[in-house]
Design a protein around this nucleic acid. Structure first.
Lengths: 211, 211
DNA sequence: AAAAATATTGAACCGGTGGACAGGGTGGGC
DNA sequence: GCCCACCCTGTCCACCGGTTCAATATTTTT
C-alpha cells in the first residue's frame, strides 16, 4: 500500500493519478503503523533544508525497511542529497508525470535508488574526482606539472598565500610566483581560485562569461 | 531479450539461472544488432581498468537506450565508478544470487540505477561533503547565510571576481565586498580562497600555521 | 514602536596577486 | 658543445581583495 505524507492534499494531484489506491497522511506518524505501507512518499514543500534530513530519518525510523521517496515542487540537488543521505530511496518532482512516478515506485520497490540524471552525473563526477586524484584526462592533472610546480600548486590549493608557500618550500616569494604562473598557463586558469576549483572539481565549468 | 557478453560462458552460471532465456555473446558486437536486446550484461573479468570505461562506452554506443549492467567476480568501487561514468546502469557481483540479479534487471529496466549500498554511501558522502556537510553545525554551512550573502558566496565559489559577481547580481562591487566580508566573518575564513576550500571540503584543515 | 537584521553604497588604504620585462645556474640529451 | 627543460631570483607596476572608516533604506523581530 502506497502512503503519501503531505499536509496539503491538493499538492498530491499527480501522485493520486499515479497511485489511485494510495493513502495520504497529513503528518509523519510517531508510532509504527498497524499496517506497514509498501512505500512512503514525503512531500518536502514547506520543510526547511535543515529539517528535511531529520524528517526523512524519522520516517525511516518509524517504518524500517520501507523505501522512502521525497517529492517537491521545487527540487534541487542539495535537497535531494539531504534526503538521500538521510536514507531516502528517491527524489523526484511533485509535478512529474504519473508514469514517471510509477517507474520510480517500481525501481525503489526493488531496492533500487532513483536519482535524476543531472544529480547522478554530479555525484559520479564528485566521486571519481576524489578517486582519480591526478588520474587522467581531467583539465587539472597534477601529473602534468613538474615536481616543484606541483608542490607550489598543492600549497596554494590548501589556501596558502605566496609568502606562506615560499616559507614552507624554502624558496623566495618570487619563485613561487614563477612556478604558479607556469601552473596557471598549463591548466588554463587565470588565478589561484580557479586553480583550486579545477583541482577539486575537474568537471566544474568556469562561471565567467567567455567574452 | 537479455544479452550477456562474456568470452568464457562458464562464468555466467549464476546469470543463466537468473535469466534462462538470455543469450550470450563472446565479444562486444561492432555493428548494431538486428534484434535489439532489452538489457546488456557485460562481464568485466579480464578487462583492465583503463579499458573498462571504453568497453562500456562502446556497448552503449552500439545499443543506444539499452541499459548496461556490469558484473564481475572481483568488484570494487573504483571499477564500479568507471563503469557508471561510462554510462552503465548498474554494477553487481557475478556470483550474486539469481534473485538479486533479477531485481537489478527490474530496476535498470525501469531506468533506475543499481549501485551497491557501500558504493552509494561513499558517493553520497563525497558529494555532500562538498555541497555542505549534511550534519549541521559545521564550519561552512550555506544555510547560515542570508540569501544575499549566499548568492555572493555561490558566485565567488564558482571563481567569479568581485566585479563579475557584482555584475551578475546587479549590485555594485562595494556591496559584494560587504556581503563577502560578512560571509568571511561567519565562516571564520580570511579570504575567498579559504571560503572555496571550506565550502568544497569542510574536513580539510587550513594549511597555515595559526601562530 | 523600538530594536535588530538585512541590503545597499561611497572613499580611502594597503597588502596580496599576477604579468612584464629581466637574468643565472644545473643537468640531461643530441 | 649546444640546446632545452627545470629551478631559482630580481624589479616594477597595474589591479584585485579585504578592511576600515562611514551612511541610508527596507524588512523582520521583539
Amino acid at each position: 500500500m502506497m502512503l503519501a505524507i503531505c499536509p496539503r492534499a491538493e499538492l498530491l494531484a499527480r501522485w493520486r493519478k499515479a497511485f489511485p489506491e494510495g493513502r495520504v497522511l497529513a503528518t509523519i506518524p510517531r508510532a509504527p503503523l498497524t499496517v506497514a505501507p509498501s512505500q512512503l512518499w514525503l512531500h518536502a514543500d514547506g520543510i526547511a533544508d535543515p529539517d528535511l534530513g531529520r524528517r526523512v530519518a524519522a520516517l525511516v525510523a518509524v517504518c524500517p525497511g520501507v523505501p522512502v521517496v521525497v517529492i517537491s515542487t521545487a527540487p534541487n540537488q542539495y535537497r535531494a542529497l539531504l534526503a538521500l543521505e538521510a536514507g531516502a530511496s528517491g527524489f523526484c518532482h511533485a509535478l512529474a508525470a504519473p508514469e514517471l512516478m510509477q517507474q520510480v515506485a517500481t525501481v525503489v520497490a526493488h531496492g533500487g535508488l532513483w536519482v535524476g540524471p543531472e544529480l547522478m552525473k554530479r555525484m559520479l563526477g564528485a566521486v571519481t574526482a576524489r578517486l582519480d586524484q591526478g588520474g587522467g584526462g581531467s583539465v587539472a592533472d597534477l601529473s602534468r606539472l613538474t615536481p616543484r610546480e606541483r608542490a607550489v600548486a598543492t600549497e596554494v590549493s590548501r589556501g596558502a598565500t605566496n609568502k606562506e608557500a615560499a616559507r614552507t618550500l624554502g624558496i623566495t616569494e618570487r619563485t613561487v610566483k614563477a612556478h604558479l604562473a607556469a601552473v596557471f598557463e598549463k591548466f588554463g586558469v587565470r588565478d589561484r581560485l580557479e586553480l583550486v576549483i579545477a583541482l577539486r572539481d575537474p568537471l566544474a565549468a568556469p562561471a565567467r562569461s567567455v567574452a
